[in-house]
Design a protein around this nucleic acid. Structure first.
Lengths: 193, 193
DNA sequence: ACTGATATTAGTACCAAGTGCTAATAACAA
DNA sequence: TTGTTATTAGCACTTGGTACTAATATCAGT
């Protein structure tokens, strides 16, 4: 018998590469105790591209849909999904430092910061600024809560260079914050380089 | 004279690569009408890594995307004058860390945070929460600006336990931010301990 | 115009991480 | 034993480079 069956090895191979696209054939050969050639045959059969192509894929995927207006570390909360000029989703874990000592309720500006960051990030432009916003804090949020904020671009006026974004934040499915943000942008439609 | 000066070419080279890290030396050589070797010397001098390293950087950056959510400074502005349930004044000095790297304009949530903090502070109650707010960012604020924010309590409804506060922020006398905040409070008039 | 410094180009050997191909074994099953 | 599938080996070739040497251009100052 083989160390493992071919099938089993290929299953694990797919997983391993999916898990870490940066692994070379040589590393895989060592890991599965087979020759490099075997790994290559496996990749052929499974139609898995070579290392460089895999890396390029990862890079270009994020490059196409990169957050243009905001370097990633300037975002409050973690963006977990984004489709520029359409919608975006972020997660923000409320910790002790975000709440009032007195009553344990999150300070409004942290929720606003998350929403505002996301509104800026969703705009497919280098310069995006909040011009106006109308917000409501629906329910108090506490330390330990995981706030999921969704931004939906609902309108765009080319003349005034404004884009309207609707923000909704929830904790365990319950709405805690809603807001409508008017964003200013520099570039018009199709003007993106 | 050269096609362009070396300096100029290198400036453009940096830009081009920053703009599109997927470009090869050969493409760059064609673009700038110089030899591949010149491009390589330029990259050496500018310490720009080779294509594969650049791609790997882009890929790994997004791959180990552990975004740090920056907590906002606890003290948002310094309160310099306060008359509970009437008016309050605070100062906030905008520093480099409060602005977008990209364009030097202060992130909206810092201005909101200052206003929100002041709105909470002006309410003479142990529990004051922002329920709703309607805000406008009138003019961009930059690093070095000193933002003076004034809160004025303009209305109070005992039944709904709401207090309306008007906020105005100025830099050198010019209005940069205005907002109307609806604050929730637990205690009614005269109920304060 | 001559010299020296700087800039550019050319060419070679080498590397990583492959592809594509052929051929030799090995393992197993009927 | 034969046929099939699986595995390994080896070689030539590819991209997009590095590292290095050497030749040539270009320009600036005297």
């Amino acid at each position: 018998m083989l160390r493992r069956t071919k099938k089993e090895r290929q299953r694990l191979l797919s997983e391993t590469i999916a898990d870490n696209p940066f692994v070379t054939d040589e590393q895989l050969a060592t890991q599965f105790q087979v020759s490099v050639q075997t790994i290559r045959l496996d990749r052929m059969e499974l139609a898995i591209p070579e290392l460089r192509e895999r890396i390029k894929d990862v890079a270009s995927k994020t490059y196409e849909n990169e957050v243009k207006s905001l370097p990633i570390d300037e975002v409050i909360g973690e963006i977990i999904d984004i489709e520029l000029d359409n919608r975006a989703l972020s997660i923000f874990d409320v910790k002790e430092e975000h709440v009032f000592q007195r009553n344990g309720i999150a300070r409004g500006h942290h929720l606003f910061a998350q929403a505002n960051s996301l509104a800026v990030a969703v705009i497919d432009d280098e310069l995006a600024l909040t011009v106006h916003s109308n917000i409501t804090f629906v329910k108090p949020v506490r330390a330990g809560d995981r706030v999921i904020t969704k931004a939906i671009v609902i309108g765009r006026d080319e003349k005034s260079q404004r884009t309207k974004v609707e923000l909704t934040s929830t904790v365990n499915g319950e709405t805690v914050f809603v807001g409508e943000f008017d964003m200013y942008r520099t570039k018009g439609k199709g003007e993106q380089q």
